[in-house]
Design a protein around this nucleic acid. Structure first.
Lengths: 206, 206
DNA sequence: ATTTTTTTATTGAACGTTCAATCAATAAAA
DNA sequence: TTTTATTGATTGAACGTTCAATAAAAAAAT
């Protein structure tokens, strides 16, 4: 089996296996043995490629954040130069792609969220991501309203996205992802109702 | 030290110590020894009063849900027979009391939320709580709009509360609790804007 | 009022288990 | 023959639980 150039393959396999293990039994019971079995390799390989379990967990979180960033970036690139509303809508859709990418990613995300409270390395990653979402939203809202209002609008919509996404992905019986996405858009429409959306988009209640 | 009637005291102490330990080092590192030391007792006592660590964790989550229920109930009782808007506002304020009750409670809540994905006992508790929040909101919105709209309004506001509360209590640098609460109320006002609030409440944008 | 007995509350060392990490051994490819 | 990739048994630390021992309080007996 030892061919050369295994490193990127193994890294990717192990990161995916980590999410799958967390999806199955939670972060607390996602042991190196379980993760390794999921990837079809031995446990020792994790220390070899990631320096240890912590390294693998950090790489996994980094992967999720990268995926999220790409999901948003792709949609926004397709817009060329759209209206603020278009950009914000793209940000919303990109964020709800997290769950589309996979169920495991959702549970992994939440697990990392909780444990990032106590692990500086993860906390840093998460803070950067939060800030990016907030800044992007704020910049777009700023094109439609005064700075103070734009800030509150960004905070509100960011919270809305997190809240809906959480409830949508974690208990799909009560709120499926598609409906969650629709509610987020409705909320955006509501927030933009009294503001000058230069290219008057013809949308009613729902 | 052995006086009679220690049970309720110890139970309460240990539950508080559990939250404090989770606040300090996270659920993963909240060992029985650490929790016991926080309460000023020995580790063995946990099995004695709660049958084991799992029992203590479940009791702790139950306590948090009870506190939340009371925070909401108290505010609603003060209303006697208020308008739907008043009741919903009381539900919002009650939910933001979670953090007022303590910072530890917030981190504990998130930790349980994540681990409830994989522990049926905790999942049950959390589902009951979710359902209660949704039902209460839905019932009040129902007094102002058609059923379908009321359901979506309830889902939206529930997500808004969770999202804002999460961001508010877990990273107070970016969004302090008081502002989060204000934004939730603003969102409610926005959602109720086009609806007949029988007792016309004189509130403008913000 | 004092002593004895019983009950209640608590301790902490010992035990068995589980985990992450290590590393000498191995085997395929270069 | 050298390099690269991988294994899996081993190690040591940490954890939750158990339980015999202990000590204070309460109850009973003197």
């Amino acid at each position: 089996m030892p061919k050369t150039g295994m490193e990127p393959i193994r890294r990717s396999q192990l990161i995916q296996a980590t999410m799958a293990a967390i999806d199955e039994v939670g972060l607390a019971d996602a042991t190196v043995l379980r993760i390794a079995r999921h990837a079809g390799v031995s446990a020792g390989i994790i220390s070899h490629y990631f320096g240890g379990k912590d390294g693998l967990l950090e790489a996994t979180m980094r992967q999720i954040l990268t995926d999220l960033g790409q999901a948003v970036a792709e949609r926004r690139l397709r817009l060329a130069d759209g209206s603020p509303r278009d950009h914000i809508a793209a940000i919303i859709d990109g964020n709800f792609d997290r769950s589309q990418i996979s169920g495991p990613a959702a549970k992994t995300w939440l697990a990392f969220w909780a444990s990032s409270m106590h692990r500086p390395q993860l906390q840093r990653l998460q803070h950067v991501n939060d800030q990016r979402l907030y800044s992007n939203l704020c910049f777009q809202f700023r094109r439609l309203m005064p700075l103070n209002e734009a800030r509150d609008a960004a905070r509100t919509l960011a919270a809305m996205i997190d809240g809906l996404w959480l409830r949508g992905t974690l208990s799909p019986e009560g709120l499926d992802t598609e409906r969650a996405r629709r509610l987020a858009h409705a909320c955006l429409d509501n927030m933009l109702a009294g503001h000058d959306t230069s290219a008057a988009s013809p949308k009613e209640t729902a």
